[in-house]
Nucleic acid binder design. Structure first.
Length: 260
DNA sequence: ATGCCACCTTCAAGGTGA
């Protein structure tokens, strides 16, 4: 089975592009980020017509995450525990009935955090700490667990085209990379690092400055797996070709294949 | 230091992202 993660930068604007890709790539589960709409505006019918069930955590104008699943969605929950005052729609989690048993999947849109000297940066770090706390809870279940999304973290120097261009950016900040490491040390494996690990394989290219044409990208979309999911990890891929489609998102899908 | 692009809201221009 294939699980994809894709920051689509507006699900309504991107719908024809998303549909084309789903028909071609046929992922079984899809974690979407930046749907940029409220639940009732989500194009549920279009995805159901392709055989997907939908779990949605939307918000007006900004953020918003969703999970599409060919399998039944047994349970789902929205929002990250730990701050009831946080009204950003950045986290949704579902348990799906995969062929070989239940699989827990989360779609994550981690805050950007720029500029670095601002409350937005503190919000990002706090959000990451809350994610880590929740991940520990989920890992204690000892299930197949997939935490997929736009982490807004450039983890390695070789995950961007020019590290000097990102030196003062919240995506590359020391504290942010340390926190991403700490998340993994809880017992999560980065699927890309486990199965490929090549440098300069990007998941985002800015619309501006001809970033795509110049190859100026960054690798910020990640899929983290519990040991039970890593045991059945077959492969990982980046659907780079979607960046050259009509009306592309600035992000491209990352896909893991699991024997699950 | 800012705009460069593309998205949002609700028709005009400012907020947001990475």
């Amino acid at each position: 089975m294939k699980i994809a993660s894709w920051n689509v930068n507006s699900v309504r604007t991107r719908l024809p592009t998303i549909i084309d890709w789903l028909k071609d790539a046929r992922p079984d589960v899809v974690c979407l980020q930046e749907i940029k709409c409220q639940d009732e505006q989500f194009p549920t019918q279009a995805f159901e017509d392709l055989g997907y069930n939908c779990a949605i955590h939307g918000q007006k104008s900004y953020n918003g995450v969703a999970i599409l699943s060919r399998y039944a969605i047994e349970e789902s929950m929205t929002g990250l525990p730990g701050d009831e005052a946080d009204d950003h729609a950045r986290y949704i989690e579902a348990v799906v009935s995969a062929d070989k048993g239940p699989l827990r999947v989360a779609s994550i849109y981690l805050p950007n955090g720029n500029p670095k000297e601002s409350e937005k940066f503190d919000y990002k770090l706090n959000w990451m700490r809350r994610l880590r706390t929740h991940a520990k809870t989920l890992l204690a279940y000892e299930e197949k667990l997939v935490l997929a999304g736009d982490y807004n973290v450039i983890y390695r120097d070789e995950d961007c085209w020019d590290v000097e261009a990102w030196a003062d950016d919240a995506l590359y900040a020391r504290e942010v990379r340390d926190e991403f490491a700490a998340l993994q040390w809880c017992g999560l494996t980065d699927a890309w690092m486990a199965r490929d690990a090549r440098a300069h394989q990007y998941t985002f290219w800015d619309y501006q400055r001809g970033a795509w044409q110049r190859g100026h990208g960054i690798h910020i979309d990640h899929i983290l797996l519990s040991s039970q999911a890593t045991d059945v990890l077959q492969g990982v891929a980046i659907a780079k070709e979607t960046r050259a489609m009509d009306k592309p998102s600035d992000h491209v899908p990352v896909i893991v294949e699991l024997d699950a």
